[in-house]
Amino acid sequence: MANVMEVYQLLPKTNCKECGYPTCMAFAVALLGKEKIIEDCPPLIENPKYEKKLEKLRELLAPLMSADATETGMIIHTDKCYGCGNCVVACPVNVANDPKGTALGFGPKSGRAILMVEDGVIKCVNVEECRRFGPEKILCSACIVTCPSRAIEFV
């Protein structure tokens, strides 16, 4: 997951205000908060001397900007996923919502599970039930630490 300083280092650092923010640091925060997109910084896009920085910044923010990220910031890298279901079974929400299915190691049985395996890879549904959802979120990491291939991350 990218942090503000990493993003800031890849901006022009001129505080030109063309993006509407007073400083490049503020713009970095806005980028991470998904309030702005990279294209809102005209010098970075237009000036060829920033070409390398731009490329690196796009790379850094790619996971965050991807359409795959859910409202909790969860990104599932399906290309890395083993479909083992460890996260499905370890997820405390699944355990509470689906005590006869995922809690016991099976596939979901109640329709209220938030993580499940389809076509050999993990899928997240009913995201509002995730502990990381909303302002009162808890930084639960059950699905991250049980993954053999780091296929799940939060941005």
Binding site: Y82, C84, G85, N86, V88, V89, A90, L104, G105, F106
Partner: peptide, 18 residues
């Protein structure tokens, strides 16, 4: 098991409640 019997840990050995 993660590579060879991928659901071993989730269905039986490590993660499920019993």
């Amino acid at each position: 098991p993660s590579s060879s019997q991928p659901r071993h840990m989730s269905r039986f050995s490590y993660f499920p409640r019993g």
